[in-house]
């Protein structure tokens, strides 16, 4: 998979993961890494970028066992963007599959 393609998909994966529940950076990385095998350092700029673009917001959550963690929450805009990306992805997969057959 080309790096460019992978990065586009990463956006989709991050948003999709956060649409289920809020989470912090390392947890997001681990979830995606289990499936795609990415490097940790690519995930943080993506998260930051999406916060900047208004797809995500952050908040600090105190934890009983340790220091506060920065949690990411998907915004309404983010959800809309996710739907877009999802549609694009499904179309994309369909198209490619039709070529493969």
């Amino acid at each position: 998979m080309s790096i460019q393609l992978k990065k586009g998909i990463l956006d989709l994966c991050v948003l999709s993961k956060l649409s289920l529940n809020d989470s912090y950076g390392y947890d997001i990385y681990q979830t995606i890494n289990n499936v795609l095998g990415i490097s940790e350092s690519t995930i943080y700029p993506i998260l930051r970028k999406m916060v900047k673009e208004g797809y995500l917001t952050t908040y600090l959550q105190e934890s009983p066992e340790g220091p506060a963690r920065k949690y990411f929450k998907i915004t309404r805009l983010g959800k809309k963007h996710l739907e877009n990306l999802k549609d694009n992805w499904i179309t994309f997969v369909k198209d490619v599959n039709s070529l493969l057959r």
Binding site: Y24, G25, Y26, E40, E65, G66, P67, R69, K70
Partner: peptide, 10 residues
Amino acid sequence: EERFQSGKIY
């Protein structure tokens, strides 16, 4: 920084 702290504590 957060990564270090949570790795240590959690």
